[in-house]
């Protein structure tokens, strides 16, 4: 499991930009961003190089922030890559709440992020021969400042 930063965003102009600027000012590099929104608010999900520091800086600026455990899996960059992974999870009854992916520059595989409500997810994927990332693969293990 790896750490994702989840940020509550009130529905007001410039708020996402303010979040991004806060991270930039703290010299934090975002690897992936996914925004879920409703009519009234949004939640930004961020994979970055220093999640604990990101949480501390964002909270310092008044944002509501949670650290969420998600599964990060290496996904072959070819047609059917995602379908294989999802079928593997589905066959074991692991429910996926949401998913998104990003590609590292120069890499041959994409990184897939899954939010699951099931402790077995990582083991299921590893048993199917997939590479499940540990935190050190994606970001520094930082302290919260």
């Amino acid at each position: 499991m790896v750490e994702q930063v989840s940020v509550f965003l009130e529905n007001k102009p410039g708020h996402l930009a303010q979040m991004a600027r806060t991270l930039a000012d703290a010299d934090i590099n975002m690897r992936a961003l996914m925004v879920a929104d409703t009519q009234d608010f949004g939640v930004a999900r961020v994979i970055c190089d220093r999640p604990r520091a990101a949480k501390a800086h964002l909270e310092g600026e008044g944002f509501g922030v949670s650290i969420t455990s998600v599964v990060a899996v290496e996904m072959p960059d070819r047609p059917g890559g995602l379908a294989d992974v999802l079928e593997t999870l589905g066959a074991q009854g692991v429910n996926v709440e949401y998913a998104y992916a990003f590609v590292e520059p120069g890499a041959e595989a994409a990184v897939d992020i899954f939010k699951v409500d099931d402790d077995r997810a990582a083991a299921v994927l590893e048993a199917a021969g997939l590479r499940v990332y540990v935190p050190e693969d994606l970001y520094e293990l930082d302290s919260p400042v």
Partner: peptide, 18 residues
């Protein structure tokens, strides 16, 4: 105001709370 210790990743729960 949402309580500071809310799980902000849970969009559905936030909607339910609202």
């Amino acid at each position: 105001e949402v309580a500071p210790d809310t799980d902000f990743d849970e969009v559905r729960e936030l909607e339910t709370l609202r």
